[in-house]
Computed example of a mutant assay.
Amino acid sequence: MYTKHAEKRVQQRGISQEVCEMLLSYGDEKFDGHGGIVQYFSEKSVSRLIAEKGIQYCKKNIKQFKAYLVKSARDGAIITVGIDRTPHKFKVLGAA
């Protein structure tokens, strides 16, 4: 379930529902200290995704791995989504 805020951010930031579903299925989690859980792609989660979807799929969609979402720890509703501007290097993909 997406909050109205999250629906707006998905549109504004061009993050597809498929990416959000991949984050929910494969992304690592960390608590944000404010009642939310941040889900993001890490080296480990990208490795799990490669095992399931294949290396070519992942290399083709590497830019999507900078996406993250924040969901409620209480009910799991997606509060917001965004793109991490920090440079990433996923060694398992051999690319930045």
Rank of each mutant, 00 (worst) to 15 (best):
V10R: 10
Q17D: 06
K63W: 11
K60R: 10
G76S: 11
V19Q: 01
I55K: 09
A96R: 12
K60H: 03
G82A: 10
V10M: 15
D28R: 02
K8S: 10
H34L: 13
G36S: 06
K59C: 12
I55F: 09
Q64F: 15
R85C: 10
T3D: 15
S72H: 02
V10H: 11
R13H: 08
V81S: 00
S16C: 01
F31D: 14
G27T: 02
L24D: 13
S45M: 06
S47A: 11
V46R: 01
G33N: 05
R74V: 14
E43I: 08
E21L: 13
K8A: 15
Y40G: 07
C58H: 08
F65I: 03
R74G: 14
E18H: 12
S16D: 03
G94P: 04
E52Y: 03
Q11T: 13
E18G: 15
Y68C: 11
I79S: 15
V10L: 09
A73L: 04
F41E: 05
T80Y: 02
D84V: 07
A51I: 14
K71D: 07
E43M: 04
E43S: 05
S47H: 13
F41R: 00
P87N: 06
S45I: 02
Y57T: 10
A77L: 07
G14F: 03
V38N: 12
I55T: 04
I15W: 05
Q17G: 12
Y26C: 06
E7K: 11
C58T: 03
K91Q: 13
L69A: 10
K91W: 05
A67G: 09
I79L: 08
L93H: 13
Q17M: 13
V46S: 01
E18Q: 12
G82V: 02
S72F: 03
G76F: 04
F90A: 07
I78R: 00
L93Y: 12
G35W: 06
K63Y: 04
K89V: 14
R13D: 01
E7R: 04
G33Y: 05
E21N: 08
H88V: 11
C20S: 12
A6Y: 07
S16F: 12
K4T: 08
H34T: 11
G82Y: 01
D32W: 04
K30F: 11
A95H: 06
N61T: 02
C20H: 02
I50P: 01
L49P: 09
T86I: 14
K4A: 10
D84C: 11
D84I: 14
Q12D: 03
N61F: 03
K53A: 09
F90G: 10
S47P: 14
G27P: 04
V38P: 07
Y57S: 07
V38R: 08
G35P: 07
A51P: 08
Y26N: 04
E21T: 14
I55G: 15
A77K: 08
I37Q: 05
V70A: 11
F65N: 00
G27Q: 01
V19L: 06
